[in-house]
Design a protein around this nucleic acid. Structure first.
Length: 305
DNA sequence: TAAGATAAGAGGGACAT
DNA sequence: ATGTCAGTCTTATCTTA
């Protein structure tokens, strides 16, 4: 037996999320998307929080999460007109319950801010799947978006741009290497719009962001190419030297990482085209060349590591 | 065919007005 | 707040090896 949760599917966006009352699984009646997270985690805790490590793992209810619009604390009145024992309700009780249900659903999404948040978090969930973002980053993004909403920064701007910017900020903050471009493509929003929103978030919320570490970018680029550990290590050494000499400030970290990899390949006798490298790094060949030239001029490449 | 060179254009930061 | 400037990156095209 299933009933409608009256909430939006995070894949197709339709208000057709159903739950199977036996398995507790949530899925979309329209597109078949299975969104079981909320109930999946509602079972008893799998380890004990007692100091002595006792044998009574227990917890009440699902964990609350910033990525659920009401933090997972909502209750929904069962839409079947039956009482606890399964008997049909009397006519007068039926109308009472109907009225309650109306208020119940209104209280959940009446505020425009709440509806906005709902939509944004749906979008966020979609991005998570596309970009394989970890849940801690996701929580951070949701938190930032809530702050933005509080400060009324979303007004007059598109929700998808703002949620994408929140996600980007969360990635930056947690040093998860995702470029503005990656997110722009996943969100189907122009890079420019996201960066504008990001800057706004950055200024208004006084965010302190760590500088993007180009060494982290090596792993990301080389995961798309077949590169040996040795080459990666060598490239990392080059970048470390570059950072030490402050040769890297103001440069696109992806471009720097790509140039370092390019040089590392050359030194280790592996032939790789600038084209493939540029593609993997999401920068142009020209940028790689320029960074490569910069490395040469700084004489970093003459060092023997 | 890959790599280097060059030029035009966009977007954003710093700084002055 | 607005404009200018230097620096970066992208796109496009041509040349070189």
């Amino acid at each position: 037996m299933t009933f409608n949760l009256n909430s939006n599917c995070s894949r197709c966006g339709k208000k057709s999320l159903l739950t199977d009352q036996v398995t507790g699984e949530q899925f979309c009646g329209k597109c078949g998307y299975v969104a079981s997270e909320k109930l999946q985690a509602s079972g008893p805790e799998w380890r004990s929080f007692q100091k002595d490590g006792g044998s009574d793992p227990a917890r009440t209810g699902a964990p609350s999460s910033l990525t659920i619009h009401d933090m997972g604390l909502s209750t929904i009145i069962n839409p079947q007109n039956r009482d606890a024992t399964g008997k049909p309700l009397t006519a007068s009780m039926k109308s009472t319950i109907t009225r309650l249900r109306t208020w119940d659903s209104r209280s959940q999404s009446s505020a425009t801010a709440d509806r906005n948040l709902r939509q944004a978090l749906n979008e966020l969930n979609r991005l998570k799947d596309k970009l394989t973002i970890s849940s801690s980053v996701l929580e951070k993004a949701a938190y930032l978006y809530r702050k933005a909403l509080e400060k009324k920064l979303v007004r007059g701007r598109s929700i998808s741009a703002m949620i994408a910017a929140s996600l980007y900020a969360a990635c930056r903050d947690t040093e998860t290497p995702r470029t503005l471009k990656d997110i722009a493509e996943a969100a189907n929003v122009k890079r420019k719009d996201i960066s504008r929103c990001y800057r706004l978030l950055h200024n208004e919320l006084n965010l302190k962001m760590p500088v993007v570490d180009s060494i982290q970018c090596i792993a990301r680029i080389s995961s798309k190419l077949k590169v040996t550990e040795k080459i990666k290590r060598y490239a990392a050494k080059i970048l470390k030297e570059t950072q030490k000499r402050q040769e890297s400030s103001g440069k696109d970290p992806m471009g720097l990482a790509a140039a370092a990899l390019y040089f590392s390949c050359a030194i280790n006798g592996v032939s790789i085209t600038q084209r493939d490298l540029a593609e993997a790094a999401g920068v142009t060949e020209v940028t790689i060349r320029n960074r490569y030239k910069g490395l040469k001029e700084a004489k970093i490449l003459e060092l023997d590591f």
